[in-house]
Structures are given as C-alpha cells and as structure tokens.
Amino acid sequence: MKKVNWLISLLVLVSLLLTACGGGAQSHLDKIKQAGVIKVGTSADYPPFEYVDESGNKTGFDIELMEEIAKRMGVKVEWVDMPFDSLIAGVQEGKIDCSISAFNYTEERDKVVDFSEAYYTAEDAFLVAETFTGNITKPEDVAQYKVGVQSGTTQDDWLTNVLKIPEQNLSRYDRADQAALDLKSGRIDVMMADAIPAKALAQKIGGLKIVYTGVLSSGPMNIVLPEGDTELAKAINDILKQLKQEGFIDQLAQKYFAE
C-alpha cells in the first residue's frame, strides 16, 4: 500500500551496530499500563483510515479502532503523527509503542517489526452497468474493457502496475462518484473500487451491479508492533478478536468506507 523508506534499511544496519541496551525487568505491556498511555504512531494523511478533520482532530477507521483497543486495555492513546516512512523506524527504535496506519504485511517489514492479526481486509470490486453484456469471471478479464478508477488509489496502482492495462483503456477520476456516473452513461465499461463504497455507490446511483469481489489491490491490514513483543501482541490480538466477534469492526467499516 505504501513504500518502505530506504532510510529504514540504513537504520536497521546502524542499530545492529549499536545494539539496544536492553529493557529493564518490567515488560513493555506493564510499562504501558503503568503509564496509562499507549503511544501510537500514525500518518494522519490517509483518509478514510487516518486523517485530520478540518478542526485538526484525528479521525478515521484506524483511529477509532485504536481508541477502542486502548480503552479495552485500560489506557489512553497518545497519538504521534509522523510521515508514513518514519513509522516503522519509530516502532523499531521504541519511540512509539505501536503503529496503526493501514499497514500491509510485507516480508521486508517483518524482518524488523512484528504484525498483529489482520484487523481489516480491503476487498476490491468490479462494478458494471446493469446493461453490461461482457464477461468478467476473473480479474484479468477487465483488461480488454474500458476501465475507470479513482486516481491515486491502490486500485489505480494495481491496474497500472500489476495488470498493466493499456493506458488508452484506463480513465482516472478525481472522485469515485464521477467514475460511477461515467459508468452509467456508458463512457467506461468497468469501474474498480473498494468493495464497501462500491456497493454503496451502486445503490445510490442505481443501474449498476457488482460482477466480482476479491482481495486484489491491497492485502489485510495489521497493527505494527515491536519485534518480539509477544505480550503486547497477544493483548492486542485478543481485543481484535473480541471486536470482530462483536461486529464492531464491520460497523466501523460501514461508517468510514460506505460512502
């Protein structure tokens, strides 16, 4: 979803040379609980997952989720806003206790930090007009049609770099609803978007249907935790499990992604 900064590799190297002085007898989780505060890093420039509203308050799917997790741990969140590229280094060097910022698991990252269980998996959907007569049974099939996508999204990235769809077949839009309107009017044949907003759009605009859903452009999202911190990982994973069972996460997804 986002890139790993080259600086992280540098940091890994140098920190191996310096080797951390090792924590005290108290575990990380105990320290967090004792302080009553968990320092959570996020890059608040990625709506709807984490962003600031116009009064400067942090909000978004990840933000609300983390606030709930902290509440159940009995602590408060102290948000530390950093550029995305600094977050892994921040966790790794103990400047923040963990980070939630729409992180996907990658092997590269797993070398230096740990990941919680996935808390959300963004599904993609292909949307067509109800009058569409073509045939889309597998993702690759869209390559032969005129496809619309919101510019700069993970779907845009997937269509351009993974599917390598010919440029003349790809239309990029500033907003998803613009693409949906063009889909209805027949200027494009297929539209690719996040599954939840795609469903909502189909309902709102009418005359559209979903022909395919699946995990294509981004993988499951995980909270980034310090390497080897099994105690904190367990505490967070347990709460995530509860939240999933209670339907809290689905509600949150509806709130943030369904428009």
């Binding site: 420039d45 990625y46 709506p47 600031v52 116009e54 806003d81 950093m82 550029p83 400047k95």
Partner: peptide, 21 residues
C-alpha cells in the same frame, strides 16, 4: 522535523490536503 512527528506548518498542510483534497 515533521519526519519525526513534530507537527509544524507543512505537515499540517499535508494533512489537510489529504482530508479536503
């Protein structure tokens, strides 16, 4: 300094740019 989490002018502009497009 925004790179290590100090929210100065430019970082705030980035955030609002992302929010409001």
């Amino acid at each position: 300094v925004y790179a290590i989490g100090v929210p100065e002018i430019l970082r705030r502009a980035q955030q609002l740019s992302a929010t409001t497009q």
